[in-house]
Write a protein that binds this DNA or RNA. Structure first.
Lengths: 203, 203
DNA sequence: CTTTCAAAGTTAGCGCCTCTAACATATGTT
DNA sequence: AACATATGTTAGAGGCGCTAACTTTGAAAG
């Protein structure tokens, strides 16, 4: 079965697709209770299995969280591409749209966002997150290369892509839980994102 | 006694200054094990008291973490001011120096940094963090106002201060655990920070 | 100097959590 | 049909957060 298709109901003893259901349950719980403060046990109750079941699919709690984080990273990438596809064929506008998608994701799923960009303990999982993160960052890099009329491996493109990423990631993190309101400036988000893109890409 | 002076040894039954010792122990543990994955119980062992002792000083675990976060925010502010004081009387250079201090703090104390800018559950504690965060952000705002030859309450100053904060916060977060290396560009940090200040303040 | 009392420790223990071991049941291959 | 494997189960060890009830201590009040 394709991963991520939550179709099968529990067929008596076996669950059907516990792995995906668990990831979904944990995702919900991470949003509801924060990514500390939730428990695997509760996700099990929600998925209708015993609290030992997850360990047939995951080594430990950390591995489940990584699965949720990877899933989140993919959805973030999809959202960026979708938002960029909506706007006209203008490089700058597309980059701005990606920023909007990024911030929107952080605001819609703060728990997953924090998980995705939080720490990972073990080395192999860090490597996995790095690989998937690389793909997602590549989406932005392509748009920037397009905008600057250069290639993705151009150091200038990479430098500016990273600047954009920093900017948007920072704003997303700060605005997520109201820290942006420390600055009393009335923050029109669209203006901010457009300004950011302009200053980085055309400066 | 001044807060933060960890002098008194345990005098038989009473500890002397358990509150400060606990905060220090938790700070260490948050660095060692991450801010999930550590336990109050372990901090107690390290401070040489029973696992029930903390609850004479703090309502719950969350309140201890807030204390560590607030402490971290103060130290971040101090570090920013110290780094800025080192450089010549040039507004732009000072802002850059503050960025360097911010990123340095994140790299030296990633656990505390994540804690400080992570979520807080209860409303009153969120309010406390907001107040202290406001003070710290004010340090940057003053430097920016100086640089733009305007006042702190000027909307332009606030807008640009926030842009700087986003930028630096984003870079700090991403570089902390190697996510910056996703971009393969050789990142000379000083150049990056200088570029950021320039683009935001002079753009 | 004694008495008293609040502050700040202690032990005991409940309920919940993570994770393991041993056992049970379904599925699919030969 | 028989077996192997994957994926469930229950039982339970060990750890943690937090509370209740008790104890020690230092210091203020008489």
């Amino acid at each position: 079965m394709l991963p991520g298709t939550l179709v099968s109901e529990k067929t008596g003893y076996h669950h059907g697709d516990l792995r995906a259901h668990l990831v979904a349950a944990v995702r919900e719980l991470v949003e509801e209770k924060g990514f500390d403060g939730f428990s695997i046990a509760e996700a099990c109750r929600r998925a209708g299995v015993s609290s030992a079941a997850p360990y047939k699919h995951f080594k430990d709690k950390q591995e489940i969280l990584v699965a949720v984080a990877v899933d989140g990273l993919f959805r973030l990438g999809d959202r960026m591409e979708a938002e960029a596809a909506k706007v006209a064929d203008d490089g700058l506008a597309r980059v701005t749209a990606m920023g909007r998608a990024y911030v929107g994701f952080a605001r819609d799923e703060p728990g997953v966002f924090r998980l995705t960009f939080g720490q990972v303990d073990t080395e192999d999982k860090r490597e996995m997150m790095r690989a998937v993160g690389c793909d997602t960052f590549g989406i932005l890099q392509r748009a920037v290369a397009d905008c600057l009329a250069t290639t993705q491996d151009d150091p200038v493109c990479q430098f500016r892509s990273y600047m954009l990423w920093s900017f948007v990631h920072g704003h997303a993190s700060l605005s997520m839980d109201g820290k942006a309101e420390i600055s009393e400036a009335p923050l029109e988000e669209d203006r901010l994102l457009a300004e950011i893109s302009r200053r980085v890409l055309l400066g």
